[in-house]
Simulated scan of single mutants.
Amino acid sequence: MMILGWKKRYFEILKQFKYSEKKDKESAIKLNSILKKSNADEKILNLIKDNTVLIIGSGPSLSSAIPKLKKYKKIVKIAADSSIKPLVENGIIPDIIVTDLDGDENSLKKIGKTKSIFVVHAHGDNLNKLEFAKKFKNCIGTTQSTPFDKIQNFGGFTDGDRAVFLANYFQAKKIILFGMDFGKRIGKFSETRKIDRKIKLQKLKKAESLLKWLSTFTKCKLFTTSKAINGFKKISYKDLDIIIT
């Protein structure tokens, strides 16, 4: 099952970035063969439904966000994998990690031994990394293409916006963004090479456009402590106690 309107946006992504739908499907088939059946979906639903969820990216504002995130130990946190290393280094273990396996492997291994749930994404460029998913105790698989068997599609393009689409799908009450800036600067934690800077900024722009689209139909209340995004209410760190309660 895909959210209404996703297929159109997926084909736009394929065209813009010259990706291969065939390779996306091949990667999804491999991930499906690796994953074991689990009740991770039920665990995710129990964590997210009707709750406030903090979504963490690796944008420039992550450094200032970390002290605030440490304060909210009992609030559900979903993190994009590029934010994992600084989070782990600061004693923050996300409840859910959304990853295409490009993040810091040591940090992913460390969290893989915890109760955290991994949402591993299969796409045409990470076919050779998918075996890494075997290291995670709790894991589900996703694709940008047509879902099947154990592979699902909640919507989204990059790890960060896929995390927001995931929270929307599992019916979060409130979604608050941290370290998701979508500007012309790339956060120091993203580990983006200089030669990849241009394509990274294009991906961020596409991710932002998808979040704007999501805001037009979601039932979740949307907030951001990062760069202002249409459809998300911009809040300061001082507002957090009021918003989260």
Score class of each variant (00 low, 15 high):
residue 233 K to V: 10
residue 131 E to S: 14
residue 40 A to E: 13
residue 97 I to S: 04
residue 241 D to Y: 02
residue 149 D to I: 00
residue 44 I to S: 10
residue 3 I to A: 11
residue 198 K to C: 02
residue 180 M to E: 01
residue 28 A to G: 09
residue 183 G to W: 01
residue 82 S to Y: 07
residue 194 K to C: 00
residue 141 G to F: 08
residue 88 V to N: 10
residue 50 D to I: 09
residue 127 L to F: 15
residue 169 Y to M: 11
residue 96 I to S: 06
residue 101 L to G: 04
residue 240 L to M: 11
residue 89 E to I: 07
residue 70 K to E: 13
residue 175 I to W: 04
residue 2 M to E: 14
residue 187 G to T: 02
residue 41 D to A: 10
residue 213 W to K: 11
residue 194 K to Q: 11
residue 203 K to I: 01
residue 107 S to L: 04
residue 80 A to V: 03
residue 227 K to H: 12
residue 183 G to K: 02
residue 242 I to G: 00
residue 192 T to H: 01
residue 16 Q to L: 15
residue 162 R to L: 04
residue 127 L to W: 10
residue 190 S to P: 00
residue 242 I to K: 14
residue 161 D to Y: 03
residue 240 L to I: 05
residue 170 F to N: 09
residue 151 I to L: 08
residue 40 A to I: 07
residue 238 K to F: 09
residue 5 G to D: 09
residue 153 N to E: 07
residue 140 I to Y: 06
residue 145 S to Q: 04
residue 45 L to C: 12
residue 56 I to P: 05
residue 100 D to Q: 05
residue 234 K to S: 11
residue 39 N to K: 14
residue 180 M to P: 01
residue 78 I to Q: 06
residue 6 W to I: 06
residue 182 F to L: 04
residue 204 L to G: 14
residue 230 N to R: 14
residue 35 L to H: 06
residue 41 D to F: 15
residue 181 D to L: 00
residue 145 S to R: 03
residue 219 K to S: 13
residue 224 T to P: 08
residue 70 K to G: 08
residue 5 G to H: 08
residue 79 A to G: 05
residue 205 K to S: 15
residue 220 C to W: 05
residue 140 I to N: 05
residue 220 C to L: 00
residue 78 I to T: 08
residue 42 E to I: 13
residue 138 N to E: 08
residue 18 K to Q: 15
residue 8 K to F: 14
residue 135 K to I: 12
residue 151 I to D: 01
residue 22 K to R: 13
residue 213 W to L: 12
residue 43 K to R: 15
residue 223 F to Q: 03
residue 165 F to A: 11
residue 138 N to D: 04
residue 65 A to E: 01
residue 229 I to M: 07
residue 223 F to H: 05
residue 196 D to P: 09
residue 116 S to M: 03
residue 151 I to W: 03
residue 188 K to L: 06
residue 240 L to H: 03
residue 241 D to K: 02
residue 46 N to F: 13
residue 19 Y to D: 11
residue 10 Y to H: 02
residue 9 R to T: 02
residue 212 K to G: 02
residue 170 F to M: 08
residue 23 K to T: 07
residue 72 Y to S: 10
residue 192 T to L: 05
residue 232 F to S: 07
residue 238 K to L: 11
residue 200 K to E: 05
residue 198 K to E: 15
residue 189 F to W: 06
residue 135 K to E: 15
residue 143 T to S: 04
residue 224 T to G: 05
residue 164 V to F: 10
residue 182 F to I: 03
residue 38 S to E: 14
residue 176 I to G: 06
residue 155 G to C: 08
residue 5 G to W: 11
residue 84 I to Q: 08
residue 37 K to V: 12
residue 55 I to D: 00
residue 143 T to P: 00
residue 13 I to C: 06
residue 186 I to V: 12
